[in-house]
Design a protein around this nucleic acid. Structure first.
Length: 301
DNA sequence: ATTCAGGTGCGAG
DNA sequence: CTCGCACCTGAA
């Protein structure tokens, strides 16, 4: 199959999207943005969805976001007065991602053209790198309900209470000083030392986690893989979901099976699949990944 | 009771 | 450097 050469401009448009400075409690999102699909396609673990209402903690505040057609309304829970800057929340939810352009480009690939009608509207969020890193370290050889429980336990035991209810994600310094038994009590199992390890590395500035967005993909990846409990797949998740490296293509068992089935009809190593995806989709590899992942989990591939 | 789950770090060849 | 294997533990 001929590689689909994608101009790098799409990735750049997304990455450099202007941040609105004024306060807005609501925002109109361009089709096909789908809040529910964005929150439930597996990139984030702490947002919960109830029909058209999403609840999540972001930057130490509890938010409720209601969807009304193409309009999203944000409510700050537990804060009686004093409006607050909402723009960072929209940025977090990636409401500015040029999805129609991205999906139009992705549809040049025959496989994606077939599944896109079932997966359209996914935006790749901009998550806090530290929370994202810990979440995906926990995700290794684990199942989603338990991952969510573990993250929630970490917040409950080590995070600061949040006005609207619940707890913020704990800081690296806080987790670095946590006792191993207390960490294991968060259902972490054998991953407890990994969480402690990454906490220490980040707290001690062994790795400039928040600066990796400005570091080229390959170099940023190397820095992450050096951390305990962080392999190729977890590194790619962090680079994609929190650092804006949309050329990252995390290969888990679902993606591996889907790509082998739909593109190769034969076995490939995770590394080979990752390299193939970067070549095939360029700066949109991460978006392709999310659509293929959701399609695989939905039984479409 | 047995099996499975969004990988990673190991040692062995 | 690639390959095979063990691994905490709750939920089905």
């Amino acid at each position: 199959m001929a590689p689909i050469l994608l101009p790098s401009d799409v990735g750049e448009i997304w990455r450099r999207a202007p941040q609105r400075r004024h306060r807005v409690a609501s925002i109109r999102v361009a089709p096909p943005y789908d809040l529910g699909r964005t929150l439930e396609c597996g990139q984030v673990f702490r947002w919960t969805l109830h029909g058209d209402e999403a609840v999540g903690t972001f930057r130490g505040r509890r938010w409720t976001v209601r969807r009304d057609g193409n309009l999203l309304r944000a409510h700050l829970d537990g804060v009686a007065s004093g409006r607050r800057q909402v723009a960072p929340l929209w940025r977090h939810l990636a409401t500015d991602a040029p999805l129609s352009l991205i999906e139009e480009r992705l549809a040049r690939d025959p496989v994606l053209r077939r599944i896109l009608p079932h997966t359209t509207g996914i935006a790749i969020m901009r998550q806090d790198p530290w929370e994202c890193l810990v979440s995906f370290v926990i995700s290794a050889f684990n199942n989603i309900p338990k991952i969510r429980q573990s993250v929630e336990q970490l917040c409950r035991r080590f995070g600061e209470p949040v006005p609207g209810g619940g707890y913020a994600f704990p800081t690296a310094a806080r987790l670095a000083e946590a006792r191993p038994p207390a960490l294991r009590a968060c259902l972490l199992g054998y991953r407890a030392p990994y969480v402690r390890g990454v906490a220490r590395a980040v707290a001690d500035r062994m790795v400039g986690l928040s600066r990796l967005a400005a570091v080229p993909y390959e170099a940023a990846r190397e820095a992450l893989v050096a951390l305990p409990g962080v392999g190729e797949k977890v590194a790619d998740c962090v680079l994609l979901f929190s650092h804006g490296h949309t050329e990252a293509f995390p290969v888990d068992v679902w993606i591996q099976r889907a790509v082998e089935e739909a593109y190769f009809r034969g076995r490939r190593t995770p590394g080979a699949i990752r390299e193939w995806a970067r070549d095939q989709f360029g700066p949109l590899a991460g978006y392709a990944n999310q659509h293929l992942f959701l399609a695989a989990r939905s039984g479409l591939i």
